[in-house]
Amino acid sequence: MNKFESELKKGNFIISECSDCKEIVWPPSNYCNKCFGHVKWRKPSEIGKLIEFSKKENVNFCIAEFEEKIRIMGTLIGEIISPKIGQRVKLKKCGLNDGQFNFTMALI
């Protein structure tokens, strides 16, 4: 289990950033996919923007983008009347249980 997964298991969302060229490496990896430099781990901004969304039964799901780079699919919670693409979202919760990754976002 890498650092991303061990932190996610504790409910912390961290990302990898290259120590040399400062590129955000997503999906998380131990080495930069631009210059192969070592990465350091840090918390990203919890505020992102809505890229796209849909709904299965009563569960809304979406793609959200953080720091103009990191895109994740997750559950969209809260009052959702007419979401707008580009609308701000906040990462509310994340986890890793039995090998299952999960992310929960809310419109703000």
Binding site: E52, K56, F61, M73, G74, Q100, F101, N102
Partner: peptide, 17 residues
């Protein structure tokens, strides 16, 4: 492998998007 899909791994989710 695609962790960025979170729990929405089944193809119907990308098809929906």
């Amino acid at each position: 492998w695609d962790k960025s899909r979170g729990e929405f791994k089944h193809p119907i989710f990308w098809g929906s998007i």
